[in-house]
Amino acid sequence: MSARDEILAKVRSALDGVEPAYAVPPAPRVPDRGDLAALFVERVEDYRAVVTRCAAPDLAGVVAQVLDGARAVVPPGLDLDLPGAVTDDGFTAYELDRFDAVVTRARVGIAETGTIVLDHAPDQGRRAISLVPDLHVCIVDAGQVVADVPDAIALLDPARPLTWISGPSATSDIELDRVEGVHGPRTLHVVLVS
């Protein structure tokens, strides 16, 4: 008997006499927290990420200011005029390691938890580009911010790879003290456009 068939047979025999149908109680919703954009900013800053709010026409200028001359890689669909930024051309990991920064957009923001989710569409690029450089500038539209985790899950397509980001890379492995900056970008700068 193959390992597959043997494991499935053992599972079935282990559950002999157990009713398979089971009603899952619905998960509760968070109460209305009012201004989602404001809550989002507060919660993102709580992780010691940097947040800048700006109006749509000022976006390119604000991002250029944040980059401050850093050598940046950008996804092909960013649709933002950034002088000096290099569009991702399938760089190797070693080549990406030579960039200081990356600028991406996002798919959804979660106010309750201060989380940004990338679904790696062309305006965000493949997963590696938002991982290897040390500074991640992430542009979020205020209209993309939802209240809580279930709202995000309903919007996201599981067939795409997803990266949920809540603040910069961090660890609590030494005496359970939180330290920002291990392997992922050590600085996360969120630009919230309204």
Binding site: I110, G114, H120, R126, T163, P168, G184
Partner: peptide, 21 residues
């Protein structure tokens, strides 16, 4: 687990994504 509203990174993937990962 870590006593955070959300952990810094959660990755999800479904099989192979051409050109990514």
């Amino acid at each position: 687990s870590t006593g955070e509203r959300m952990n810094p990174y959660t990755s999800t993937w479904s099989g192979v994504t051409p050109g990514d990962g």
